[in-house]
Design a binder for these strands. Structure first.
Lengths: 215, 215
DNA sequence: AGAAGCACCTGTATT
DNA sequence: TAATACAGGTGCTTC
């Protein structure tokens, strides 16, 4: 009952990380904080000029729908965040604090680098027994136990151009068109993090999360 | 006691529009949103390349003091704003939500286009009887019933250069040196808006504004 | 260090 | 109903 047989491509699917959502992640701040170690391991922004400015990541959910988020680093809080697009995801998936999102990668050719990877995002409700506040079942929005595969990722830029403003030349506030997972970020050069060695089962992840018992 | 005898040039003075100030207009956002219809009618940014980038507008107040604001279009919110310089005006005039600003134009030669127009900005407190929160009288800062004539307007650019972030190559964040009110914007080609036909008396304008009864 | 300036973003109300 | 206007925000940069 695990994810090993989704699409019959078990060997190439790799779970990157999951995050249990805080109230802020689903609130009015319209952003998801990605824990730094996960962000720097899986979504490195590079050190080139302007590469910290942020970019767009596209994922696919379990229905095949594409979700594009602006991903960037906030120097003021020293944190990596998904901003633009995130609130729409929260709303459509009816995510609440205590729910979780899972990020996966699917690599078409195992020997290759990450340049061709497709990215998936999945969401998972916390235990139904703990959720007493939901009257309408969110099953359709976010399938229980679904590992929620999500699609490809690519850069893109400007979210569709915002001419008037900070268009060309400056990184300020603009995403830049560049690829992630370059050859300089070979998977082999990285070490799996502790969580990957002993991951709390995705089907029973909530108990240790502080927000699991809230709300 | 209307504005017809200011400077004895009544025939050339034309009220453009007024705006009742929202909390955001006088708050920490340091910007005044100019309703799109008024902005496009009276302060067109032009359609040339980069002309939406913004420019500087200079006005004169009732004391003859010049006030220069950066005026630009925010593509993301599809709105026109005064930014740089606005907070100083709010502070000096002690403007609060519910107060209003009035924009006027004075045309030296009636037959001419708008190229030589001088611009005036006036501020007006909401009814004193409705303002119970002000301990210090703002009379000196913003004269009650004064139509607040304001000065000339010209473009200029960069307000003194703001090199840094969005600097070189891109129009972004930079104002451009160009004139407003070109011959292609002949006054005769425009129709006065309804507000101009039946303006609520400037000395009793607040009752219909939602912010008049707030705060 | 702080305030102002800047471009970008979004929910809500309105049309 | 989808699109628009804009009030109220953000992070980041500059001064």
């Amino acid at each position: 009952m695990d994810s090993h047989h989704h699409h019959g491509q078990t060997h190439a699917r790799e779970r990157m990380f999951e995050k249990h959502l805080t109230p802020s992640d689903v609130g009015k701040l319209n952003r998801l904080v990605i824990p730094k170690q996960h962000a720097e391991r899986h979504f490195p922004l590079g050190s080139g000029p302007g590469e910290k400015a942020g970019l767009l990541l596209s994922f696919e959910d379990e229905t095949g729908k594409a979700w594009t988020f602006r991903y960037s680093y906030w120097t003021s809080s020293q944190s990596y965040v998904l901003t633009k697009g995130w609130s729409r995801f929260v709303k459509e998936k009816k995510l609440d604090a205590g729910d979780a999102v899972l990020f996966e990668r699917y690599r078409p050719r195992p020997g290759q680098g990450r340049g061709d990877d497709r990215l998936y995002i999945g969401c998972r409700r916390r235990r139904a027994s703990e959720a007493g506040d939901n009257t309408a079942t969110p099953a359709a929005a976010c399938r229980a136990n679904a590992v929620a595969p999500c699609f490809y990722m690519i850069n893109s830029s400007n979210g569709g151009e915002q001419a008037g403003g900070a268009a060309a030349g400056t990184p300020t506030g603009n995403t830049r068109r560049l690829r992630l997972f370059g050859v300089n970020l070979e998977c082999g050069a990285e070490q799996p993090e502790p969580e990957h060695f002993a991951p709390p089962s995705w089907s029973q992840f909530m108990p240790t999360n502080p927000y699991a018992s809230q709300l």
